[in-house]
Design a protein around this nucleic acid. Sequence first.
DNA 1: TAGATTGTTAATCGATTAACAATC
DNA 2: TAGATTGTTAATCGATTAACAATC
Lengths: 229, 229
Amino acid sequence: MAQNTFKVNNLPAVRRLPIYWHLLHGLLEKGWEYVSTTVIADELKLDAIQVRKDLALTGITGKPRVGYTIKTLISAIESFLGWDSNNEAFLVGVGHLGTALLGYNGFARFGLHIVAAFDDDPQKVGGEVHGLPIFPLEKMNDLAERLHVKIAIITVPAEAAQAVADQLINVGIVGIWNFTPAFLMVPEGVVVQNEDLASGLAVLSHKLTQMKLQNELPSEEHEKGEANV
Amino acid sequence: MAQNTFKVNNLPAVRRLPIYWHLLHGLLEKGWEYVSTTVIADELKLDAIQVRKDLALTGITGKPRVGYTIKTLISAIESFLGWDSNNEAFLVGVGHLGTALLGYNGFARFGLHIVAAFDDDPQKVGGEVHGLPIFPLEKMNDLAERLHVKIAIITVPAEAAQAVADQLINVGIVGIWNFTPAFLMVPEGVVVQNEDLASGLAVLSHKLTQMKLQNELPSEEHEKGEANV
DNA sequence: TAGATTGTTAATCGATTAACAATC
DNA sequence: TAGATTGTTAATCGATTAACAATC
């Protein structure tokens, strides 16, 4: 019945789109024009059917026997993710990580432009990092209004994260990229993306521990070996 | 039949463990001794049953009516993830992000100690970042042997990532924390954890786009409103 | 005791994988 | 044409959620 199936909520698939995007750029640079899902799957150790399903999210279709036009695919991913329109962002917390993110100009490719940085350290306020002036937190309101900023990156210490988030939401921020381990309480209508490095490290540690165990119990069924006990 | 069910492969759950860990530390500092999964779920906007299942991974059990001993739980998470043993790590690529990670001493809490940094820029080699000397890539073999390092963090430009990974694997590295968007080909027995910021940004962008769409189609079923067309 | 909370077994939901017809 | 590849429908797998007995 629904004229609009709107089955656009596959987060794992969304996370894979940038990975395809990166690969596609590489192929383009190598002079390729078309690519099949078989090739993509092979390069990324994925299932070709999965790749096809993922790419279908963007609405693009391929040609049997030929594959997909790489350029079209890249654009489709960008527009699906909204990376083809410019987004201005604030960054709050000019410590090690904040400074690194300010210096990393790679986000521009994704339409993300950090237009102002904030910190509450009087030593830092008034200074510049990678050409961007650092403002005191009080200036936030003023600048948000003037620049119509909707996205903010939080790189403050965890203890300060909630207060900073509250303040950001207050000045109209609706998307928060949270690099602290703090869990932020936000009202409906505000989106938070947690980027906690500890989670990534946990997975790495866990995989390593698993592997170590596997090696200690020598031939404990090599995935599907014969039962030998 | 299997005396060892070994159902320890729930990656989403593993990613949540550090989040619990952080919350538990906060509660401990507030003077709490016990905590129930109801409280944890409430704080993190999760399901209490899910929290219980996740915590069960670590092997710890709680007491009905009381909950879990916070200190025990913290230790259990740490030991499950191997965070209670020290792991030495290399870091390759002392650019913006690499420098930030070197300066971020928070990893020590997770047992991860960066013991040497490498870069191929002669300008950087011989210098120091946050007290750590920067070595040329050639020194890798030497140092890996001497220090028994098993983990490496890659923060080089994407184009150089595969070559660096090859070299690292060559000197005995078995765990790679890959901060580049490059997909690394590694032999069996080597674990890679990709930490591509673009994936996180993609999810944020996607959620924001979704929200915008929702607002544009005004009352398109408020999750379960009446069909009005 | 009464009742909150755990831990386990079963049901549901969603993502991945398989099967296969359509197509260039 | 023959056959590689797409796109869709169905089957499987795994994670989340529900139900409920056990317990302090």
